[in-house]
């Protein structure tokens, strides 16, 4: 579409005001948030805030609790994304293109996605209950001792991770399945005739064709994992001993428990910058400007 055509396109009267409103709103809010983050606004001392410059950002760098939360966010996002993609892809490749009861399976896959995080969190909290939970009961059947899933600082983060994987791997499966269905089958047959074994067909021909879909799913999952809040809130509330406190959750605590609004917003901005840098890096690796696609 040429720029001339766009300029004379009457539909712009509908979408341009919307774009202007959204832009103004987001720019104004961002600037307002940055402005507040440069003060020391606290609900405990309402009306006595003053400009403090970059103090809140410097405080973040020296805050061990914040740094630990940042590291936990990175760990959780990386593990969740990698495991969900790998597991989802494995399931899709394992299930054939046309297996019996495909429609039923596809419907069942939607259940965890549709379920509200509160229900998912509560369900997994019951499953992981160290005294009465199903998880420990199943482990006891194979002779493994009780695990304090949500009570042990070393394990709790992984317990939440398992719940996240349970809820979001089906999403990966659905998207990759759709990509697989729209991929042409002739190149796969051509590779078989050309002498490729089944794993070679998958590795050299099928996976490269699915790369774009996988990259997009990975981006979506990474963004969601960084922002994850509800599962943590329901299952652990950041505990035990802060062992499941992500940066997002820490920001919430600072704002709504400590009422330190300015510092909380500084954390939110740092998380935003961090997310953007990480995702842009990921994007440029997954979609190189030169080369295919």
């Amino acid at each position: 579409m040429s720029t001339v055509a766009t300029a004379s396109d009457p539909t712009r009267h509908f979408f341009q005001p919307v774009i202007v409103c959204l832009t103004v709103a987001s720019v104004a809010l961002t600037l307002f948030v940055i402005w507040i983050s440069l003060h020391d606004l606290s609900l405990m001392r309402a009306g006595r805030e003053k400009f403090v410059g970059l103090d809140n950002y410097i405080r973040f760098l020296g805050d061990p609790r914040a740094m630990a939360a940042l590291w936990r966010t990175v760990l959780f996002t990386t593990l969740a994304t990698v495991i969900e993609i790998a597991l989802g892809l494995a399931v899709v490749l394992f299930l054939d293109r046309n297996f019996a009861m495909k429609r039923l399976v596809r419907t069942l896959l939607l259940v965890p996605i549709i379920m509200t995080p509160v229900v998912v969190g509560l369900t997994w909290r019951f499953l992981f209950d160290s005294a009465t939970g199903m998880a420990n009961y199943l482990l006891s059947l194979v002779g493994i001792a009780q695990v304090d899933w949500l009570g042990s600082p070393r394990i709790a983060l992984f317990a939440v991770l398992i719940a996240d994987i349970w809820q979001w791997t089906p999403f990966v499966i659905l998207l990759v399945m759709a990509a697989l269905e729209s991929a042409p089958t002739d190149p796969l047959n051509a590779a078989r005739v050309d002498g490729a074994r089944e794993w070679q067909v998958t590795w050299y021909v099928l996976l490269p064709m699915l790369r774009r879909a996988l990259a997009i799913v990975a981006l979506i999952r990474a963004i969601d994992s960084i922002k994850a809040f509800d599962l943590f809130y329901i299952m652990t509330r950041g505990g035990p001993a802060l062992s499941t406190e992500t940066l997002n959750y820490y920001g919430y605590i600072v704002a709504f428990t400590n009422f330190d609004i300015s510092y909380s917003l500084a954390i939110a901005i740092i998380l935003t910058i961090f997310t953007n840098v990480a995702l842009l890096t990921m994007y440029s690796v997954l979609f190189p400007k030169t080369g295919d696609r």
Partner: peptide
Amino acid sequence: LPARDRDVAMVFQSYALYPTM
């Protein structure tokens, strides 16, 4: 025998080139 062991070559109607190569 599977296709890879038959020592045949095939040209498809859809060309069936490997899109990423």
